[in-house]
Structure formats: C-alpha cells, structure tokens
C-alpha cells in the first residue's frame, strides 16, 4: 500500500529530525563498540605494538581470573550500597525540602552544590577528612565514638568510597525527586489525610506510587553511573586495601592503561557493557510490577 504524499512527507521529516542523533550514535557509539569487540578478540600490547588474533582467549581468561571475581564482588557491593544509600538519602532530602520549611531554598542549594564542584577538589578534601586522625574521626571522638581507620579497613573503605560518592551526586537525584514530589496532586494527600492516614502511610501509599516512574529512572541512571565510578576510587583507596575496592571499571582501567593489556581490557569492556545492558533490561521489565503508571 503506497502511503499518501502527505504521509511520505511526514516520514521524511521524521527521518531528517532523528538523522543527526542516529548517525552520531552509529559513528560515536556503535562503531567504537564494534571496534572494542574486535579488539577483545586480540592480544594487543600497545607498548610492544603487538596485535595478534587470539579468538575467544580473552573471554576464557576471564573465567579463570581471580582478580576479576574479586572485582565483580566489589562492584556488586559498591553498586548495591551506592544505589540504596543514594536513593534513600535523595528521597529523604526531597521530602524534607518539600515541607515548605524555613530556609528551604538555602538548603536546596547546599545539597546541590557538590554536583557542580570539581570531583578532584571534592575527593581531595574527603581524603583528608577520612584519615585515621582526620576531621571525621575528630568529630566522632567528640561524640565519644572511636572511628575506624576509614581507608585502611576493607569494609570501612568501601563504605567511605560509597558515602563520598553519594554526597557528591545525591543532589541531582534529590532535585529529580523534588520535581516529582511537586507533581503529586495535593488533593490526594489531603484525601488520605482525611482518611486518617499518618505521614508515613501517606508517603508509602500515595506519594511513592505516584513518583515511582521517577524512582525507576533515577535508579537506572544511578546504577549505570555506579558502574562507571573510577576516579574517586583511584584517589581515595587505589583499589585497596587488598582488592576490596577494586571495582570492574577500575580493574578494566588497570588492565588497559597500567598493564597495557588492551585486548583483555576490551573483553572486560564488553562484559561491562553486557552487565549494564542486562541490568537495565531487567529493571525496565520489572517496571510494570512496581511502577504505578506508565509515562
């Protein structure tokens, strides 16, 4: 069935409008990805300038690499910890800022400000504060608590890296949640209040379902973002102590740029991409179960 001239013209406009981003994706996303897959089938030492086809060898090597297993475990802890703490804190701050309390504008600016601060400066300050005898433990000792040697103990180091990262970026998620909260019709809240629902109940049963699409999107962005965190770990712990904070991206970076193993690093990049893809698809699939309404 031939489309009418008007429909054809409209289609042409559609193709024209999406052309820049589609062609850009082909050139700057898909082509590089294909190149990475190609590299992953080679042993490529940049320094020695060797580029040898090895088939699936890099992928077989992954299966037997204890370093990778450690990295995946660290990545799991880091991502779960980051997403839970980040989303919970972002929601808490957004709810607090939505109460029309005095000074709300100032506090909103405070919480958002780290988003625009350079990562370098941010992480440096925290690396001072987290020293065994640094500002944090000094503060804790005033409260009568003896703080751990944050960056030297495996569990504490992971917690420290997560917290520093959360403080840096939670402001953005907070703003997204705040915007969503302001879209929740007041009448619904009021109706629930008249039904005798307490504040927590109203939040659970009215607010949360209504902002669930935002929660979904924010958690997708946060999880993907958590898998890309590298610089903070480099600065704060260098992946240690032991390999406790060596997450996948950091491991990949080490393989590529420190060990010059570009082939293996490319295979790790493919793995990282697949993990992100699967996670995103899973979350997207699950949206019907817990997201209140579709966009």
């Amino acid at each position: 069935m031939a489309a009418s001239a008007a429909v054809r013209r409209d289609r042409l406009v559609g193709y024209t409008m999406v052309a820049p981003v589609v062609l850009g994706s082909l050139a700057f996303v898909v082509l590089p990805l294909v190149m990475v897959v190609w590299y992953s089938l080679h042993e490529w030492n940049v320094l020695a300038n060797t580029f040898t086809f090895v088939g699936a060898e890099n992928y077989q090597r992954m299966a037997a690499d204890p370093g990778l297993a450690d990295a995946l475990r660290a990545t799991l802890w880091f991502s779960v910890g980051l997403v839970v703490v980040n989303i919970a804190l972002a929601l808490l701050l957004a709810v607090l800022l939505n109460q029309r309390l005095p000074g709300t504008t100032t506090f909103r600016t405070f919480f958002f400000s780290p988003v625009v601060v350079s990562l370098v400066a941010w992480t440096i300050v925290w690396s001072f504060l987290l020293q065994a005898d640094g500002g944090i433990n000094g503060f804790l000792s005033v409260l009568g608590v003896e703080g751990p040697n944050w960056l030297r103990r495996p569990d504490a180091a992971m917690a420290a890296v997560i917290i520093v990262q959360v403080f840096k970026n939670v402001g953005l998620n907070m703003i997204l949640f705040l915007a969503a909260l302001q879209g929740v019709p007041e009448e619904l809240q009021e109706a629930a209040r008249l039904d005798g629902a307490g504040a927590w109940r109203r939040f659970r049963s009215v607010t949360l379902p209504l902002i669930s699409p935002t929660v979904l999107l924010v958690s997708i962005i946060t999880i993907v973002g958590s898998l890309e965190v590298f610089a903070q770990i480099d600065v704060l712990t260098g992946g240690g102590p032991g390999s406790s904070t060596t997450v996948l991206v950091y491991y990949l970076y080490q393989q590529a740029f420190r060990f010059n193993e570009f082939g293996y690093a490319s295979a790790l990049a493919v793995l990282l991409f697949v993990i992100v893809l699967v996670l995103t698809l899973l979350q997207w699939q699950s949206r019907k179960r817990w997201v209140f309404h579709e966009v």
Partner: peptide
Amino acid sequence: LVLVGLLVPAEVTIVP
C-alpha cells in the same frame, strides 16, 4: 539504537 549510548561508560570507547 540511540538508547544504547546511555549504557556505554566513557572508558569503554575512549580508545576507539
């Protein structure tokens, strides 16, 4: 196809 770009960390594609 375009959404794939959302899933690619910069470190993955910097060399190509």
